[in-house]
Amino acid sequence: MTTMLHLVNKSPFERNNLDSCLRLAKSGSAVLLLEDGVFAAMNNAAYADAVKGRMGDLKFYVLGPDVSARGLDDTPLIDGINVVDYGGFVDLVAEHDVAQSWL
């Protein structure tokens, strides 16, 4: 079985990319939130429960540069989501067999 990295780049408030990813991502996969996808990582926002509900069987990452760009450095992120930079993004791609973008 291959290991998958799922990339979600759209806000869950605007599009269903995150919903579909969470519906179809297999246990043990990783999810990287980037671009407007980072809004799903906000601890006090309405989508936090959807992410928290899968923290037990998926690993979540968020792209730090996109968090900072959107003014969220002062805003709590969900506990247990790992913040990575572009180098960390590259490592995640290398560590998983397949990268699937939820466009």
Binding site: M1, T2, M4, R23, L24, K26, D97, Q100, W102, L103
Partner: peptide, 18 residues
């Protein structure tokens, strides 16, 4: 169903979405 589809997705080498 989603569960069966996710099994097949997880067996791919390249996934292209647009």
């Amino acid at each position: 169903n989603a569960e069966s589809l996710s099994e097949i997705m997880a067996q791919q080498d390249v996934v292209i979405s647009s």
